Simulated scan of single mutants.
Amino acid sequence: MLTEKQIRKMLREQYRKADSQKACAGAHAISGGYVGDVLHGRREPGGRCWLRWD
């Protein structure tokens, strides 16, 4: 099982490749706001975010 830190790192890498929060979110079926909150530590990655990389 991946750790929260690993999920954030992977999401951050995907964000950089996608070139925008919206594109990254769309690729993973999560909201752009959620991506930003997870990347900035305001929310823990959970639900769909875990399912994408677990």
Results as ranks from 00 to 15, higher is better:
R52T: 11
V38W: 00
M1F: 15
R8S: 04
D54W: 12
G46T: 04
W50C: 12
W50G: 07
Q6N: 11
Q21T: 13
G46N: 12
R16N: 14
R48G: 11
K17C: 12
S31A: 00
L2D: 04
A18S: 15
A29P: 08
I30L: 06
E4M: 10
I30V: 13
S31K: 00
K5V: 11
G41T: 05
R48I: 05
A27M: 12
K9I: 14
C24A: 12
P45H: 04
W53V: 00
R43F: 03
L51D: 13
G41C: 09
R12L: 11
Q14G: 03
H28I: 08
K17G: 06
Q6S: 11
K5I: 09
T3E: 08
C49I: 09
V38N: 00
Q21F: 12
C49G: 05
R42S: 05
R8C: 05
A25N: 01
I7R: 01
V38F: 02
G47T: 00
G26F: 09
R48H: 07
K22S: 10
H28Y: 10
I30Y: 02
L11A: 01
A29Y: 11
D54T: 12
Q21E: 15
W50I: 15
K5T: 13
I7D: 01
G26V: 02
L39P: 02
D19V: 07
G41F: 06
R52H: 13
L11I: 00
K22Q: 15
K9M: 14
A25W: 02
G47M: 08
G26Q: 13
R12N: 11
K5D: 15
I30C: 10
Y15R: 11
Y34W: 05
K17M: 11
Y34Q: 09
K9H: 14
R48A: 09
E4D: 12
G32F: 04
K5W: 10
T3K: 04
G36N: 13
R43D: 08
K17D: 13
L2A: 07
D37K: 08
A27P: 06
E4L: 08
Q14V: 03
E4C: 08
V35S: 03
D37R: 03
E44D: 15
L51W: 07
K5N: 13
G47P: 02
G32C: 11
G41P: 03
Y15L: 10
Q21V: 11
E4N: 14
